[in-house]
Design a binder for these strands. Structure first.
Lengths: 348, 348
DNA sequence: CTGTTAGCGCGTTCAT
DNA sequence: ATGAACGCGCTAACAG
């Protein structure tokens, strides 16, 4: 016989609090008090109720409870693509924290598509999740405002939204990119191309800003063709790198603004028979999990994805519980420059 | 103004079907009919209701609906660790199919831990998910029986459970391992070690069985120390490979029973200064997504994770809808041997 | 310490 | 074509 809380030997399919009450010879509310540990219940009654619960395999109805209490003990994680290891790690962190607190996690992929984002949000709002962790497709306030209009707490994750009235947990992409490009500059690079994501996505824009900042600090002009805009995908990275490597003069280094772009770029350079870092240097934003890489090779700026997820979830749960500070929190976690081999020295 | 279904300009926080009814000058039930496209509603009334819905930003209450209809339009995905790219891909496939059907997906990690699995199932049962996709931690019927006791449809994913009365979608691990080991044998290998997962996990056991089958077909005895049992983690793979490589005589090839084990093994061999495949060959089960690997190197048997997820979800949704065949389905998808460089020739 | 009443928001049943 | 009454399963508020 299985013995997990409120789940025992099953006698009938759908048991309600009523059935338990009848079997224990008490009123439904007493069963409720036992289950929820609320109010006074004598030891004897408690035991009789607990026995009945186990015997019937009673499981309280979430929907009924939610209808009554106006909370579902569930949160949502809306991200762009769980297939990206950065977000996979985020997902894991969210579930670990939420699960420990008795919350359930619903996830959705938006693929950076605003309409998909809205469709998903709509479903989640109906489902009445208690809170939403949102990696916004675009740096616009619309989605957040929509959610907050329904009084559902939101924590924006990974990305910045200007002038939004919501908690945010993210890394400083400007600073991260600045560190990475500065590192290239110190190595002696002067012609540096950047392959970044779509305009309007804060991480893409901020990494570009950090790049520009570092370049200008060195008093360098940025070549007309050194800035590539694409999407955060391997294919796009491949394509942009192909074009970057064919520039004349060729950049001595390429900065890939996320992990997928970096991998696509590596493949492109490989196809062009360009060695990294001998012929051209390559650095990226976002590290790959240790468990996935045999020869860590790429010099990157890494974000503490798991920790971000933990912090964001804790903050969201605190908001839900009404225990978060009144004012909006903005948590900006540090990135870390990890120097490996892909930009060891100046090519040539 | 945002214009997604049933979400318009927001006037008050919590609007009910009652508010909409009042504003449209009709009874709540009429609003219900409009929203659900059920029963007869005159064109004029429909329009008035729809306007009211938009004006109020009305979102139907999921819990109330669920309580009434006894379904939540949500399914659950219970897996061991979403951090493993194989399962990440599964998760993506599940969400794609479920989302398209208007279902929401809740996920949980069990870390191969039975008690965690039960705790999660308990939460999901309360939440009254309409169905569960389960990657069982152990090849036992208990969890499935528990769920089915509550009349919740289950589809078992990726793993086999002997004599279970449930739909299953998986790959043939025995055959996959057989193909892989046969390939090694054809290359001339005779001393082959296997690094597999915990006893009781069908994938671990089946891959071992496939290994034994291939070996015996070649009339080979399996060395006393050639079979290593660990967990499906990188650390375990590292550890097992270290020990395997130190055997005397050393195996000429190692078969890693999943992707994490394979990567751990690669690192171990690297640390021992053993070249692959010059000094020792290495093959693995499960490929890594193309987007994560720059130099595909490992010879593997790959499973169609995304397709498995799709099939399993479609089957589950069909079960929920009562449209699946009466008898239990067992879908066994083919694996694919992908020959790359890690076992190119016989070492030495 | 225990029970009664009532209502959360929705959709089925039956009436009009 | 529309509405009134009822109850899904639960718990807060108020008795006793």
């Amino acid at each position: 016989m299985v013995t997990i809380p409120y789940i025992g030997q099953i006698i009938v399919g759908m048991t309600t609090i009523h059935d338990v009450a009848k079997r224990a010879g008490v009123a439904p509310i007493t069963v409720s008090r036992v289950i929820n540990n609320s109010g006074y219940v004598s030891e004897g009654t408690r035991e009789r109720v607990e026995t009945a619960v186990l015997e019937l395999g009673y499981v309280p109805s979430g929907p009924a409870r939610s209808l009554r209490l106006k909370r579902t003990n569930s949160i949502a994680l809306v991200l762009t693509d769980i297939t990206n290891p950065f977000f996979t790690t985020i997902a894991r962190g969210v579930e670990d924290v939420a699960g420990a607190a008795g919350y359930t996690v619903t996830y959705c992929n938006t693929d950076e598509d605003e309409s998909k984002e809205l469709r998903n949000i709509s479903l989640l709002l109906q489902q009445q999740v208690d809170g939403i962790l949102l990696v916004p497709a675009l740096s616009k306030v619309d989605t957040v405002n929509l959610i907050e209009g329904y009084k559902v707490p939101v924590v924006v994750l990974d990305r910045r939204i200007p002038e939004v009235d919501a908690d945010i947990v993210r890394c400083d992409s400007v600073d991260g990119a600045y560190k990475l490009v500065s590192y290239l500059l110190k190595l002696g690079h002067r012609r540096i191309a950047i392959l970044t994501g779509p305009e309007g996505t804060s991480t893409a824009d901020d990494r570009l800003a950090g790049y520009k900042w570092a370049m200008s600090e060195y008093g360098l002009d940025i070549g007309k063709d050194w800035i590539f805009r694409g999407t955060f995908t391997q294919d796009s990275g491949f394509d942009m790198a192909q074009r970057a490597a064919r520039l004349n003069p060729r950049p001595s280094a390429i900065f890939a603004a996320n992990n997928f772009i970096a991998i696509g770029a590596m493949k492109a350079l490989q196809e062009l028979a360009l060695s990294v870092p001998e012929d051209i240097s390559l650095v990226g934003f976002d590290d790959l999990p240790e468990s996935l890489v045999v020869f860590p090779f790429l010099t990157v700026v890494a974000q503490p994805a798991y920790q971000m997820a933990q912090e964001a979830t804790l903050l969201l749960l605190a908001r839900i519980a009404g225990e978060a500070p009144q004012e909006r929190q903005e948590l900006v976690l540090p990135t870390k420059l990890i120097i490996r081999l892909s930009a060891e020295r100046l090519p040539g």
